[in-house]
Design a protein around this nucleic acid. Structure first.
Lengths: 344, 344
DNA sequence: CTGTTAGCGCGTTCAT
DNA sequence: ATGAACGCGCTAACAG
């Protein structure tokens, strides 16, 4: 150990197998036109010398470029802005490696818009990373992309039935359970009602979070009641009105905001003067939610790391195109919990 | 956008500046022997064409290998085993890029052992990632390595005064505060005593965690008292005895294990029959602490991602050696909070 | 001071 | 079915 292993090159293999470079190359890359006898000679040589192709040299000689496309929701919640920014940074990071990223925007509340966009993509890109929707037409569009040979990953929200390489995002039911446990434990036996706000229950991730949340509260916190879910379209103003209405009931002891629009929730809470008293949990760490955590308005924030997700999606696409391996540990997207004290 | 940018090569720059490849190379890499006039011509050409060196080609032609060394604590707590395993995986990942990693083990409770080891390293390695100790001799050894031109990062525990490239790890005072807030909120007003177990208060990270913890409890949870810290040397058996003793007092309502040895703590808690009742927070997500979380013995586990830390340290060393940029967002080590519901 | 040239390890035509 | 030779973009030795 500690000795620098002399690099085994294609030439070493060729010499060992008593053939030329080109033949070894054909053998390795499974191209036709190699006698089975020489093939096994080459394989033997590779095994004997423990040859591993040099990825750097491979990349240089292949001299190929990649086009990727990231499809994000239009309409700019803070989290989406974070995502875009991370796509920009990732694009900068990949450019020297000749992978170029386009960003496309789509209305995430409209399945047909997303499906049309996907359908129009054709073979223009080597890989596509997209927020998805659990909708037949979207699924079909993703499948078609896949069958065109385009690498597809779903990002942040999934279309489970589609033939994507991978879903890069969190388990939203588990995220909902996490919110439930945090609210339940922070309330610690205090009885009352927990108000729920979602963007839209038609969004799979929102309904999954709600499911997980209700499951935990129902099973483990009998003193708490979950109010019917209000839909605020991820909009600050609508959310503010909703929370204002909720707070008219004195029974409200907790609020779980399933989607975006935390500024609206926080505004209503502050205006009511009960912000410190009511346990409020929401999603996605942004400049705003950080502030709410620090001020004690928000008690916990459940987060998925936008940068990690974007980089992971990019790595998955790259690895697929270069057919390289990836490190599974690195691609596991965590359900982060942030409180006032562990804000990175 | 979307058009594949034609790659600008050194040759383009050379042509534009009306000099040879070699001269451009000298100019770019700041090597001596270039007339200031030609130098500015080259710089102008680079700016005009917006030339960026191709890192892949650079790597191939330089054809250099790197030797790195990771120094980990001997004595195998579960977390240290996780670290070793991640070093192994990272080594596998870097080998194709011709960076080779040795792992050395050292007794982390003995500053002189660590210092001697570091002092003996000389220029054998291009980079060293090491668990550190805030000790004069260790600091001096690290500084000497640095002045020998070796890239140094501290891993998991820091020597703040040393001339290291970076500390790859978490803010332990913040981690302690996080533990404090979690215990305080989970207890929600229940009065009593919180028991503290550390490996050794001579370890900087342990005393920082204790500090943050006591700060939060003292300032915000007046119903709680922090018991004097017991030292268990990160050992399961010692910790078990300590907790058994603690539990003889009926006032104990919470336990914060600052260091390793969670199996001992959990065993004593279970044996007492009060595991569900006492709020127990510890560090580092391992196979064991996962189990304790699922069973409700442990209420929260504060974690630093071993894989992330090792990869980050490796990236920092590589980037330094190749003098490439790194993405700051990717190197930020989070203070993870895990509860039963968000176990990845 | 500056230019020429031979690699780095592999992919990819062309010949044979 | 196999081999020779050039190119990818850059570095480094050696000339001039």
């Amino acid at each position: 150990m500690g000795i620098v292993a002399e690099r085994v090159t294609l030439e070493d293999v060729a010499r060992e197998a008593r053939v030329s470079l080109a033949t070894v190359d054909r053998a390795i890359n499974g191209r036709p036109g190699v006698h089975s006898r020489t093939l096994s000679r080459v394989e033997a040589a590779i095994a004997k010398l423990n040859y591993r192709p040099d990825p750097v040299a491979t990349r240089l000689s292949r001299n190929q470029a990649f086009q990727f496309c990231f499809i994000l929701p239009v309409g700019g919640t803070s989290f989406v802005e974070l995502l875009s920014e991370q796509v920009r940074l990732t694009a900068e990071w990949l450019a020297p490696q000749r992978a170029y990223i386009d960003t496309l925007l789509v209305d995430v509340f409209d399945p047909d818009a997303l499906a049309s966009l996907l359908e129009g993509l054709g073979k223009r890109y080597h890989g596509v990373a997209t927020v998805a929707l659990d909708h037949p037409r979207v699924r079909a569009a993703l499948d078609e992309l896949a069958s065109l040979g385009v690498a597809v990953v779903t990002l942040v929200s999934d279309a489970p039935a589609a033939r994507r390489l991978r879903y890069v995002g969190i388990d939203n039911a588990a995220a909902g359970r996490t919110a439930g446990t945090l609210i339940g434990r922070f309330l610690a036996g205090r009885p009352g009602v927990v108000g729920l706000i979602a963007g839209s229950m038609a969004l799979r991730d929102h309904s999954e979070r709600r499911f997980g949340f209700a499951q935990v509260i129902g099973a483990e916190y009998p003193a708490l009641t979950v109010a019917p879910t209000e839909e605020g379209r991820d909009d600050d103003r609508q959310n503010e009105a909703i929370v204002r209405r909720m707070l008219q009931s004195p029974d409200i002891v907790g609020i779980y905001n399933i989607g975006a629009g935390n500024r609206g929730v926080a505004a209503a809470l502050e205006a009511s003067g009960r912000a410190q008293d009511i346990v409020y949990v929401g999603h996605e760490l942004t400049a705003h939610t950080r502030r709410f955590l620090v001020r004690g308005i928000m008690d916990a924030c459940i987060n998925q790391d936008a940068g990690h997700e974007v980089r992971s999606a990019a790595r998955v696409l790259m690895a697929h195109c270069l057919n390289e391996q990836l490190m599974p540990d690195q691609e596991r997207i965590r359900i982060d919990i942030f409180i006032r004290d562990n804000l990175s």
